[in-house]
């Protein structure tokens, strides 16, 4: 007997009603954003009082979207955010899984101490180190493409890589990989070693193929964190060239007379790709959240 069959019909209707009301509460800001992105300021203000606010009705226009591209440089910021997210996640998968492999599958002296240190690093919130980290990267030597080729710079500020390099190595990612690798039966690699495989071959041909779920988990968690980053670019990227999407949002918002339709178009353009990814990979999103919670 499944749980559903035990519910009486009135109870089932009541539960559906509750779920529907809650769904409306969870959806209306999103619907409002979408509907308003096709309206001008006057229409948004006029519709605010009624249900029309969340519906695409009245004088609809795509001008807001055109402005987001033309005046808002959203294409430029989008590419910046995409490069930052993809590079950090890809490098992070490699670097962190290799470190976790050494921790979980190789024997070496000092492993226990390193693991303890890792757990301590897990509880350092990024907010607590962001200000000193900014001081540090402001003084690191870097390279940049200038008018006459590569030039040496004396600071990482205002670059794409200041938004990438500090986030590649991640204690939480290492920990997730470590937990997963640890539970793979040891016979797998023993057999490979007997056949003469090197540790790198064991990593690439035995461990990685057996660990795709944890790779998906780390990818989703890291990609979301990088895509949505705000505090770090806010304090390290004042200029326009390396500006990511979230900071680009500010130019619309807080101005003397906010063009709300443009704000909403910009917001929709940032949000819709992520929501589409979420709908397609829902099962993996769910698994990654649950996976992040098992550590307790």
């Amino acid at each position: 007997m499944t749980p559903a069959q035990r519910h009486t019909i009135p109870l089932r209707l009541a539960l559906y009603a509750m779920m529907a009301v809650l769904a409306a509460i969870f959806l209306f800001p999103f619907l409002f954003m979408l509907a308003s992105s096709f309206k001008g300021n006057d229409a948004i203000f006029a519709d605010g009082a009624t249900l029309r606010a969340v519906l695409p009705v009245g004088d609809l226009t795509t001008a807001n979207y055109a402005h987001a591209f033309a005046r808002g440089h959203i294409g430029h910021y989008f590419i910046n955010s995409l490069v930052i997210t993809v590079t950090t996640v890809a490098l992070g998968l490699l670097v962190n899984s290799l470190a976790a492999f050494a921790l979980a599958r190789l024997a070496w002296r000092g492993k226990g101490a390193v693991l303890t240190l890792l757990v301590i690093l897990l509880v350092v919130p990024f907010e607590a180190i962001s200000v000193p980290l900014m001081v540090l990267v402001a003084k690191l030597p870097g390279v940049m493409f200038g008018v006459d080729g590569l030039v040496l710079t004396r600071s990482w500020l205002d670059t794409l890589y200041v938004q990438i390099v500090p986030f590649v190595a991640n204690a939480f990612s290492i920990f997730l990989f470590y937990q997963f690798f640890r539970d793979i039966p040891k016979d797998f690699d023993e057999a490979a070693y007997v056949d003469g495989a090197t540790p790198l071959q064991v990593y690439a041909h035995v461990i990685v193929p057996a660990s795709l779920p944890v790779f998906a988990t780390v990818t989703i968690l890291q990609a979301l964190a990088m895509w949505n980053q705000y505090l770090w670019p806010l304090i390290t990227v004042p200029g326009e060239a390396a500006r990511p999407l979230m900071i680009g949002m500010e130019q619309f918002f807080g101005a003397r007379r906010t063009a709300w339709g443009e704000v909403m178009a910009y917001a929709a353009l940032i949000t819709v790709p992520v929501l589409i990814a979420f709908i397609f990979f829902q099962r993996w999103f769910v698994r990654s959240v649950v996976g992040s919670g098992v550590k307790g």
């Binding site: 809650l22 769904a23 969870f26 959806l27 800001p29 999103f30 409002f32 954003m33 979301l224 895509w227 949505n228 705000y230 979230m246 949002m249 918002f253 704000v263 909403m264 917001a267 940032i270 949000t271 992520v274 929501l275 990814a277 979420f278 999103f285 769910v286 959240v289």
Partner: peptide, 16 residues
């Protein structure tokens, strides 16, 4: 539906 706001950026959510 209930999970979807989690994947939205806090900046966007705040502005809306």
């Amino acid at each position: 539906v209930y999970f979807s706001p989690v994947v939205m950026s806090m900046v966007i959510v705040s502005v809306v």
